[in-house]
């Protein structure tokens, strides 16, 4: 069973969990993800493998509470078991052959960016981390990023921490100041990755974006996770989740991501009620 052995709130909406899953821990690579179900009858949702411990056989996930399933997940405690936990899925991040990279993370996307940054740092690649949050109380993993990168730029929308502004502002500044990156890796909200990709295109810097479309099986069986990349249809769960940012049709991806908005709202309201009942 997939027992939760650690749970830590990183900020009011983002939580870290360590889950017992020895087979997945043995194989996991940065950039890969798992699909989980909290309970029988639950929805299958994908979450990135934020970290893993091969010896202890554990996998770390970091999730933002955005809807019904993440809310139910967050109502579980240490010692509880997840119904299903499958992975590692997707292709790992290609980290070889680069001298210097910039990793641009936004919001909970930083949880996904962190293992990538760490891997680069460990293998001796120079890595600049640019991480952005709406405001100070939403900052996650700042220390981890600092100790695993040769430069950390923290940005906030409201200036309550780091510099005020967007991650694209920081990236542009670094590039303009003469930093030469072999590659930019961007992970975060679709709209942010779209603008990062537009920016790096101007400078001709290869860019990889980590996509997070709606998924079900995660094995290439349903096609629900499809995206247009360079005019071709790709399945994010098996061909990705990382793709060439200059070729992704972000507008289509953004449109597809709100396909179930109404349904999700209804389920979230139900989960809220249920959760409140349990608490009171």
């Amino acid at each position: 069973m997939f027992r939760i052995i650690k749970k830590k709130e990183l900020n009011p909406t983002v939580t870290l969990m360590e889950v017992e899953a020895p087979l997945i821990a043995k194989k996991a690579q940065p950039g890969q993800f798992v699909i989980l179900r909290t309970d029988e009858g639950g929805e299958r949702i994908p979450l990135t493998i934020a970290d893993y411990n091969r010896e202890q056989g554990t996998v770390t996930i970091i999730y933002q509470i955005v809807g019904a399933t993440t809310r139910i997940l967050n109502s579980m405690s240490v010692g509880d078991c997840l119904q299903d936990f499958v992975g590692p899925l997707g292709r790992p991040t290609v980290t070889e052959g680069k001298k210097k990279v910039a990793v641009v993370g936004g919001g909970v996307g930083c949880a996904i960016a962190y293992p990538v940054v760490k891997k680069f740092h460990e293998q001796g690649t120079k890595v600049h981390a640019i991480i952005g949050f709406r405001s100070n109380e939403l900052v996650i993993l700042e220390e981890e990023f600092r100790s695993n990168s040769s430069k950390l730029v923290l940005m906030s929308d409201d200036g309550s921490c780091g510099e005020k502004g967007l991650v694209t502002d920081a990236l542009k500044k670094l590039i303009e100041s003469g930093e030469q990156y072999d590659e930019v890796i961007t992970i975060g909200p679709l709209i942010m990755m779209k603008y990062v990709s537009m920016l790096t295109k101007q400078y001709g810097i290869k860019t990889v974006a980590s996509m997070n479309p709606i998924m079900i099986d995660g094995t290439g069986m349903c096609g629900g996770c499809r995206l247009s990349v360079g005019g071709k249809t790709q399945f994010a769960c098996v061909d990705g989740p990382e793709f060439n940012g200059h070729e992704i049709d972000f507008d289509e991806a953004i449109a597809r991501s709100d396909m179930y908005k109404e349904f999700e709202q209804k389920k979230q309201d139900e989960a809220c009620k249920l959760y409140q009942k349990e608490v009171s």
Partner: peptide, 11 residues
């Protein structure tokens, strides 16, 4: 084919 509301039968 990637518009919202278009499914594969499998999905």
């Amino acid at each position: 084919e990637n518009l919202k509301g278009v499914y594969s039968a499998n999905e």
